[in-house]
């Protein structure tokens, strides 16, 4: 299984954090908060779509609202695979960041 890309990791964690409020715009807010960059909504949907296609997230519909042209909100949650993927990233992170105490530039 290929490792999640950074943005995929961030999105999955945002979905986890958002619990049952995780729909497109909310996820975007979280990502912006985490990275400090103003991600375009359309740019979120790229990786989100891939996560969905690979089965890392599941979706369910909410109530239709007029603000969405009559469409319902689609809520996302992590699937088992998604959680497994996150766990893997967590493991890798702990390995590579292990005992990196103070990251400092060393002169040659």
């Amino acid at each position: 299984m290929k490792l999640l890309s950074r943005i995929e990791e961030i999105i999955l964690l945002s979905i986890w954090r958002l619990d049952d409020r995780a729909y497109g715009m909310a996820i975007r807010e979280e990502v912006i908060k985490a990275t400090g960059k103003k991600w375009l909504l359309g740019a979120i949907y790229g990786p989100l779509g891939r996560l969905h296609k690979n089965g890392y997230v599941l979706s369910s519909k909410g109530e239709p609202t007029p603000e969405r042209g009559g469409r319902s909100k689609v809520y996302y949650r992590l699937s088992r695979e998604g959680i497994k993927a996150l766990r893997e990233i967590n493991r890798v992170n702990s390995v590579i960041w292990n005992d990196i105490e103070k990251l400092e530039f060393k002169e040659e």
């Binding site: 497109g24 715009m25 949907y45 969405r68 042209g69 319902s72």
Partner: peptide, 13 residues
Amino acid sequence: DIQYGALGDFEEQ
């Protein structure tokens, strides 16, 4: 597969 939700989001925004 995510178009429905996406377009809805875009419209809401």
